[in-house]
Computed example of a mutant assay.
Amino acid sequence: MHETTFSTLLYRYFFFGWLFRDTSRGTLFERAAAWRYNREQARWLPTYMWRWMWWGLAFYALGGVVELLLDSPLLSMLFYVPSALAVPVNAVIAAAWVGFKAMPGPL
């Protein structure tokens, strides 16, 4: 049996690209099937949004704690930057989710 490495699991926990199929290749029927598959897999996107939101909030809180308790703005930057990056990642995930719900399939 194939064992999945920890780094692969960590990647799959935070990034969702592995869930989807390419809809730009194949015949019209293959592209339509890939689109339907991707629409079904889009149900997992809110889960990824929650993960990024909670990790962003946790890093923001850690940055605040480090800044207040240790009085070290440079060290707290190590926590504030990942928390700030969670915002655009969530925006991309939300756009993808809305796109899968609202857009018609390939023609």
Rank of each mutant, 00 (worst) to 15 (best):
Y11I: 07
L10E: 08
W18S: 12
L107T: 12
N90D: 06
G56Y: 07
Y13Q: 03
R39T: 10
L75M: 11
T8I: 01
T27W: 10
E30P: 04
T47Q: 02
D22N: 10
F29R: 14
L19H: 03
G56M: 01
L70D: 00
P73Y: 03
M103G: 04
A91E: 00
F59E: 08
L70I: 00
W52P: 00
V65L: 10
V98C: 11
R39P: 08
F14V: 01
T8R: 11
S7R: 15
F100L: 10
G64A: 03
L62M: 14
V87N: 06
E30L: 01
M77V: 12
L74C: 02
P88L: 04
L62H: 01
G17T: 06
M103H: 10
P82F: 02
F79R: 05
F59L: 07
T8E: 12
K101G: 07
S7Y: 13
A61Q: 02
V89T: 15
L45N: 02
P73H: 07
P104D: 11
L70W: 10
E3P: 12
E30C: 08
W52L: 11
Y60C: 13
I93H: 08
E3K: 11
T4R: 15
P73L: 01
T8H: 00
E67A: 13
A61M: 06
I93E: 05
A94P: 04
